[in-house]
């Protein structure tokens, strides 16, 4: 199958009067297969949005090449735009228009029917807000409307730029379900996010980006497995003596303080069975490595959201 997106050695440097030269994108390459849910994960300022804007055709790269569905996104091509849907970081709405007027305007731009517009409102759960002015929607509702506008042209390729930033956890989870359903319909989705758990929950593959470079690309599970990191098992203090904890660790790490005993093990099944036999499972917490550890590993520094 053809790739939906092919990106080769993108370069983009900004020259600011005060900041000097900033290499926002520095040799970025990746490939997204048709139907894939692809994530670009990185802290703020990593170059995710610039990369996405170049891929979408909003910016011209200083160097490198982009192919979207086999075509170059620069300069603007109506035929290509017809096949992609975009949600930008800022909620870009016509001022003073209602939700229905907004989506119907976008529907007309994509040559879609009013029925399709209404259907999209239904899909993102905004049918009851059709008469509300867009600016009066909550943050989560605005993002939903943005996504509805992105989907109204029935695109093959959907770009979502940090749709869950600045949303409360409940609204974020609701949006996750929506994003999953978009991908389930067979659309290729590219998502940028700075939330680890979001990338882990949604993406087939994740590119970890920092300082304008992609440091690792793989499925979240593979990235974590690649770390070969031990599982941390924590139980409440007072159930095991220090000696007993050392014995149960069987040569692996065990550390205790006033509140908890923490084991690091590569054989969690054995350790948990032993702890259960000991009757020492109060306050149990099991933490496997996650993308945060992957980030720490590939960048050599702590994750900061």
């Amino acid at each position: 199958m053809d790739a939906a997106i092919e990106v080769n050695d993108l370069q983009k440097t900004y020259r600011g009067r005060r900041t000097g030269e900033v290499r926002a994108v520095d040799g970025v390459s990746f490939r997204v297969e048709a139907g894939e849910f692809f994530g670009i994960l990185g802290p703020n300022g990593a170059g995710k949005t610039t990369t996405l804007e170049i891929v979408e055709g909003l910016r011209r790269p200083d160097g490198g090449e982009v192919r979207l569905l086999g075509q170059s996104p620069w300069p603007h091509s109506p035929a290509l735009s017809q096949r992609m849907g975009v949600q930008l970081q800022a909620s870009s709405f016509f001022e003073f228009l209602t939700v229905r007027e907004q989506i119907e305007t976008f529907a007309e731009l994509y040559g879609a029917s009013r029925a399709r517009a209404a259907e999209m409102l239904e899909q993102v759960g905004l049918s009851d807000k059709a008469r509300t002015r867009c600016q009066k929607l909550s943050g989560g509702q605005q993002q939903r409307l943005s996504i509805a506008c992105a989907l109204v042209g029935d695109p093959e390729l959907v770009f979502l730029d940090e749709p869950t930033a600045a949303l409360d956890p409940q609204a974020r989870r609701n949006l996750w379900d929506l994003m999953r359903s978009i991908n389930d319909e067979g659309r290729t989705v590219v998502l940028t996010t700075h939330y680890m758990e979001e990338a882990e929950a949604l993406c087939d593959r994740v590119a970890i980006m920092d300082a304008g470079r992609i440091l690792a690309v793989d499925s979240p599970a593979e990235l974590i497995r690649g770390l070969d990191a031990p599982t941390r098992v924590t139980v409440a203090a007072g159930q095991l003596s220090e000696e007993r904890a050392k014995e149960l660790a069987e040569g692996e790490t065990a550390a205790s303080d006033d509140e908890a005993v923490v084991f690091e093990t590569r054989d969690p099944q054995r350790l948990l069975t032993a702890l259960a036999a000991e009757g020492a499972l109060d306050g149990l917490a099991v933490r496997t490595a996650n993308l945060e550890d992957v980030f720490l590993n590939v960048t050599g520094r702590e994750w900061r959201e």
Binding site: E56, G57, L58, H76, P78, A79, S81, Q82, M84, V86, L88, Q89, A90, S91, S92, F93, F94, E95, F106, L109, Y110, G111, C149, G153
Partner: peptide, 19 residues
């Protein structure tokens, strides 16, 4: 100034209609 804030023109540039 509104367009700079809302990025509406960017969004519309990415529709078949263009900026």
């Amino acid at each position: 100034v509104d367009w700079k804030r809302d990025k509406l023109i960017r969004r519309l540039h990415l529709t078949p209609a263009s900026a």
